[in-house]
Design a protein around this nucleic acid. Structure first.
Lengths: 364, 364
DNA sequence: CTGAAAGCGCTAACAC
DNA sequence: GTGTTAGCGCTTTCAG
């Protein structure tokens, strides 16, 4: 099967170097363009950077023609050396099983990549694991002129390495999280509001005993979500006792286990909020396995509104957190920091309910 | 909540620039080290690159101390300009919904990243969509000295842009696929053998009517897998009629739909092979929804052996394709190509059966 | 309107 | 053993 010829028509090959491989494109520099167009380096550079309209149309034309003919493209390396800018951004993701195969991180990475590209930046991937930090590779990113700015994903309040960046004049931004009390740039969703909305939705349906499957304690959003839930409960004269809390480990399996734990502790629970959709979906399957119906016996509300949420059974009622937008925006604001268009970023985006079928009025 | 102070203890601040931000680390160059250590640029460079043992121990010591004291790290930009190497690799992934959130690509990307890091290379992410190719950004990767080599994921025989690379002397490698008839470097799994193994396993169990849920036609592995299945069938005096083929679109939903289609066309089918685990898992859920039991009524065999395969219900019997190893190996071989340690790569890795619970003897 | 020349930070011949 | 110097490819004063 050969649908097309990938290789180009062979070029005429010089006979003087018969042992050479097929003529490969050799790097063409600004010098070649200058020679070819019969002008100087300066002129070529000036034309290309549209720096100056002092160049005569005739000259510009000659230069551009030469550029075209030679297929010249300026070396980013050389430009970077000059400008002290690389045009690269780094995305730091935490170490976890297949960090790059996670839907949550994947969506943010896509968002960042998409925005970076439209702005002419390239994106570098780094896993911020122990090794990486210990060998100071995170600060090397700046010191060795690898990147102009860094986006940190999946940040926890254990990530002390973030402090190292404060010595640098290049910007760093935390994506969809923040560290209270620290002056770090961030763009995030409002997880406090997410908790409040989810809880209020369930309260309005008539639920009184609500459990929470939460994420890791060292992640600030875990606390925000819980605080939002407690606020909503308090307003209704209720509270969230510790035996209605279970850690779902951010995974489906963990969510399933946590749901069973919650109902084992207190069979009167009629609704569960999960810190993310993965755990919510896990919870649903865990409840089903225990012979409980969702939402007839127990309502489940997630948080994320990931793609899968609409396709599970029952379709998941969840809090929509605009993470794609947050990712894009984080990238955009980082570029503003890089280009000195602003000097700090603290942005919190609103969330909303995505109402589907997994939550309903409580059983009688 | 403030578990630790991220910001460093404030430095003593000069009073002469009261409006300046806190003293930031300013770039330290090789010159500074030379001055600080009272030696020349060359000496510093020589010491750092361990190029020469001609340097006296005393001098080396002085230089290294200065490096330490100043926290000097060589600029990769300048080094690159000199060496014409950037130390970057690009990963080209196809455009698909959240390319970075796909478990298959995610695993390969992780593998590449992990190997690249141990070898001192950094990894750049690019989505090879229409825009990207049309604006020639793929060739810019080389022309503008962005990267030393490129790894292509999710390649199809429609990807004519691969031909553009043949003009360049920098290496490109196709990961877990290949284009027959083209001389492109590749590292891949043996999908022909995968098909053969899966089919033989089912034949040995006693199945005679076997359906195939396949992936996209423009992907070579689709053809290989099918050919492997047909080989195994032929050896048993059987064949694969077209009505036992259905496209599963590489998704769960597609797999579910395809499974139902196959059984609607021919209710006598007792086993289904799917081109990947996603479709296999979809097929299982599609069959279940149709009231069929897996494997009692219909056996299902996948291909990939992704993490999830062990955790679905029933646990998926599948062909284990060592994609993490393939990713690592592809990166490793690409580096060899870059470093001119070899000049072409064509590697096919063996696969094996991962036997779990989704396939059994056919119903009576 | 255009060109010569300095310099970005580094490496490597080549001299001393 | 160590320093001087040229040059990687580009941008940008500064002359003309």
């Amino acid at each position: 099967m050969r649908l097309f010829a990938l290789t180009r028509p062979p070029k005429v090959q010089g006979v003087d170097h018969p042992s050479e491989p097929m003529s490969k494109r050799k790097a063409v520099s600004i010098k070649d363009v200058a020679r070819e167009s019969g002008s100087s380096l300066t002129t070529v550079s000036l034309v290309l950077n549209k720096r100056d309209r002092r160049i005569s149309d005739a000259t510009r034309d000659r230069v551009l023609k030469a550029v075209q003919r030679l297929g010249y493209r300026p070396s980013r390396l050389a430009q970077g050396l000059q400008s002290q800018r690389t045009g690269f951004l780094a995305i730091l993701v935490p170490q976890l099983r297949h960090a790059f195969a996670d839907a949550y991180f994947g969506e943010i990475i896509s968002a960042i990549h998409d925005h970076a590209r439209t702005a002419g930046y390239k994106v570098l991937l780094e896993v911020a694991d122990q090794d990486f930090i210990k060998s100071s590779q995170h600060v090397e990113l700046f010191d060795r002129h690898f990147v102009d700015g860094i986006l940190c994903l999946g940040v926890t309040n254990r990530d002390t390495y973030l402090g190292d960046f404060s010595e640098y004049s290049r910007p760093v931004i935390v994506v969809n999280n923040y560290l209270p009390g620290e002056k770090l740039n961030f763009v995030r969703c409002d997880y406090h509001e997410a908790g409040r909305l989810a809880c209020k939705y369930l309260l309005d349906l008539g639920h009184k005993k609500i459990g929470l499957i939460h994420g890791a304690d060292e992640v600030q959003t875990t606390h925000d979500l819980r605080a939002g839930i407690e606020d909503a409960l308090a307003k209704a004269g209720l509270n969230l006792p510790v035996d209605r809390l279970a850690d779902g480990l951010y995974t489906e399996e963990g969510g399933a286990e946590a749901a069973r734990t919650l109902l084992r502790r207190d069979a009167a629970i009629t609704a569960i909020i999960a810190g993310n959709d993965k755990m919510a979906i896990g919870a649903i399957s865990g409840l089903k396995e225990s012979g409980l119906r969702v939402p007839t016996d127990v309502s489940v509300v997630g948080c994320d509104d990931m793609h899968q949420a609409a396709f599970c059974d029952p379709p998941l009622t969840t809090v929509h957190t605009p993470i794609y937008e947050v990712g894009q925006r984080a990238c955009q604001r980082l570029l503003e920091l890089i280009e000195a268009k602003c000097d700090s970023v603290e942005e919190t985006h609103p969330v909303s309910m995505s109402i589907r079928k997994s939550a309903a009025v409580p059983r009688a």
